[in-house]
Amino acid sequence: MSTRRGMNVPFWLIAGWLAIVGSSPVFGGGERGGNQLPKKPPKLTVDPKAKPLTIAFISYANPQHVAKDSAAISKYLEPYVGVPVKGFVTTDYGSSVETMRSGQTDLAFVDPLAFLMAHEQIGAKPLVLEVYSTGKPTYYSCIWVQKDSGIKKPADLKGKSIAFADQVDMSGHLMPRDIFVRLGLLPADKLEGAFFKQVYFAGGDEQAIRAVTNGFVDAAGISQFAYLLLRPQERDGVTVIAKSIDSPAHLIMARKGLSEKICKRIQQAFMALDPSNPHDQELLGKLYGVQGYVEAKMSDFAEVAKIAGRYGFIRKPEAFAVKEKP
């Protein structure tokens, strides 16, 4: 394992740390496209009378704040698409997809599950994936337990309790659940009474990981980043015993029929955002604090599509296993 300054960390240091390392946002996965950012597309004159491009932003807690941020993003995008850009805020992915279905939305910020369903139902296209502070356009889920619980591996959870975040949540349910299915510990079609003594849906990542720290459940199946929701002094109390496959990051998707030319320009405009440039950094701060964007491909979603298909969220997961042109 190489470090930023090329120093090797000896095994004795790593040994007791593997669990957290496995869950740390700074590990795992490969970067795409190296460090070379594409150039921003040439600017166009904005035609104020043209039909606006509409973007659905998502807010989890503070829609007013997101609305304010979205205005800056819309303004940034306008000269690259040559038409006015209007953003609006929704509080759930379902609404974003429904507005796209009804033709009111051209672009939407969504999670992989919402995209998979939107693609299957209304032909939405993936444009760009978010890049996190890990430097990667991916994330994964973990099985978290109390560090001193004695639970070392998923099989140790037989007859014990687990909390997931929400039933319809890729990182907070389907991906971590799939860890047990892949290990043959849990049938794909049955969650309750099959392997675990008790399964809860806690209502969110924080509630789930706090259910672990409070000793209400033996494990939580949630995002790799969940421990950041704990206060610093609480984080040492939890550890990871397993992690899921990588999922592509949250993304911006476009409605079916949006012109290829516009899609290309939008991709370029987002992918060219440079975190080392102060202005771009400010914009990225308004874009949910991501580090940048990379191009999204359908094949990125092939593996998570299988998971979504396994639990009935999409009918044809094989549709995502396409070979794209380089």
């Binding site: 369903m117 139902q121 039933q167 809860y200």
Partner: peptide, 27 residues
């Protein structure tokens, strides 16, 4: 009691099911 009531909160949260997403996953 803390643990018992902790389970109760989790029971309530779980009992609320799910509104689903685009017609799937409704509980």
């Amino acid at each position: 009691a803390f643990r018992r009531l902790g389970w109760s909160w989790l029971e309530m949260s779980s009992a609320l099911g799910s509104r689903g997403l685009l017609g799937k996953g409704v509980a």
